[in-house]
Simulated assay, not measured.
Amino acid sequence: MADQRVAVVTGASRGIGRTIATTLAKAGQAVVVGYAGNETAAKEVVDQITAAGGRAVAAQADVADERDVAALFDAADEAFGGVDVVVNSAGRLALSPIAELDLDALDDMHRTNIRGSFVIAREAARRVRSGGAIVMLSTSVVGLQFPGYGAYAASKGAVEAMTLILARELRGRDVTVNAVAPGPTATELFFDGKDEQTIERLAKQPPLERLGTPADIAEVAAFLAGTGGRWVNGQVVRANGGII
């Protein structure tokens, strides 16, 4: 299937990344399911895609390790003949007031969220074919300034900056570069460490009065990664139900 678009999705073994991988597969793209450590979950995603008639392989990579990331893209070349779409959904979250933040947690989070995003963006810039798309994952907290999210928002602010600059650096390549910035989304990562009162309060913030779902975010990413999103470039799309 020489004309089939090929997507590399990181953080694809769970949560938003998993739904992005399956959504892209439903749209007809072959998918490399990138995962950090949970091989079983990644293989489940591959099985789900192939059972529905799609094409997918799993590939392990630490997104902050340039050798791992090169091997991840090599896996796409070997399995499907190249890369057209890259969605970087791998991320780490640590919540704490800035005054109480453990700096080891800060370093771990920034290694994945900043260095990892940069390594993925660098390899994508080198390898994505003409007509392709690069989609990074940010967070609406960059604009919403929720207390406790200082370090996380700072890391994602860096992602937004590199996204907008990369879009301009790829002038003439016919490759779009955008970011999706989810609001509160019902994933395992979101629910971890939050009590029911906090969850209910966050769910009531959007005018739509609910949490986002992984599918809500995946559909935006799929639009940016597909032919319909070709005229959207160098943008951060805040997919948060209208939180102001």
Rank of each mutant, 00 (worst) to 15 (best):
G241Y: 05
R115S: 08
E196Q: 15
I199T: 12
R14K: 14
V87F: 15
L166R: 06
R18H: 13
E196P: 02
R122G: 03
E160K: 03
G82K: 00
A58E: 05
W231M: 12
D77H: 05
R111V: 03
G81A: 14
P184A: 14
F73E: 14
F146E: 05
L103A: 03
E66Q: 05
A27S: 11
V119Y: 08
V141K: 00
I120M: 15
D102G: 06
L189K: 10
S13R: 05
A56C: 07
V63S: 11
A154W: 06
A64D: 12
E219C: 02
R126A: 15
L106R: 00
G37L: 01
D195N: 15
F191R: 14
A41R: 11
N88S: 15
K43R: 13
R55I: 01
L202S: 00
F80L: 02
V232E: 07
A90W: 03
G81W: 11
F223M: 15
R115A: 11
A124T: 03
T23Y: 12
S140A: 15
Q235E: 04
R201H: 08
A215T: 07
G143N: 15
Q60P: 04
L95P: 11
V31S: 08
N113Y: 04
T40V: 07
A71T: 11
A218T: 12
T50R: 13
Q205T: 08
D104I: 08
T198N: 04
V119F: 07
R55Q: 09
V236G: 13
G131H: 02
T139Y: 14
A154M: 14
D102L: 08
A186T: 10
A186P: 08
V46H: 06
D3N: 01
G183S: 05
G150F: 11
A203T: 02
D216G: 07
T23M: 11
K26G: 11
G17P: 12
I16H: 09
N240I: 03
V9A: 05
T187F: 13
L101S: 13
K194Q: 13
M162Q: 07
E188W: 10
A61K: 09
A51C: 10
L202D: 02
E39N: 11
T213E: 06
M162Y: 07
E44L: 07
A76R: 07
A7D: 10
G17H: 13
N233G: 06
V6T: 06
L95K: 05
T112E: 12
E219R: 15
R126K: 15
I114C: 10
Q145K: 12
F223T: 04
G234T: 04
A76E: 05
D84E: 12
